[in-house]
Amino acid sequence: MNYLAWQISAALFVSGLCAVILRKQLLVMLFGLEIMISAALIALVAQASSFQDSNGLAAALIILCVAAAEAVVGLSLILHLRKNKTLPDTDALMNLKG
């Protein structure tokens, strides 16, 4: 079962990475990031369970909360783009304003 968890984790990580690299919409890229974090968490939980290590599960829970905070900040940055009427697209965001 543990080996299967690793396979699922690897496949999910690669598909999340493809979303970040290939897509143009910032939102879908953020989705890809979330999938990559979840893939890493699957591997961590599988290992922590197989070694019967509750420290690992506690760490996974904290990582889950920090990843949710990261998603919220990412979503609020995308939402703030609406103010200057910019589409949340990597093509539209080409220069860093000082």
């Binding site: 019967q52 509750s54 420290n55 599960l57």
Partner: peptide, 23 residues
């Protein structure tokens, strides 16, 4: 080589006591 999967994973009580103990 992956370790064999264990039958009993750490239970929620252990995770909870760690979360509000050393963590």
């Amino acid at each position: 080589n992956f370790p064999a999967s264990s039958s009993t994973a750490p239970n929620n009580l252990a995770v909870g006591s760690i979360l509000f103990g050393s963590y």
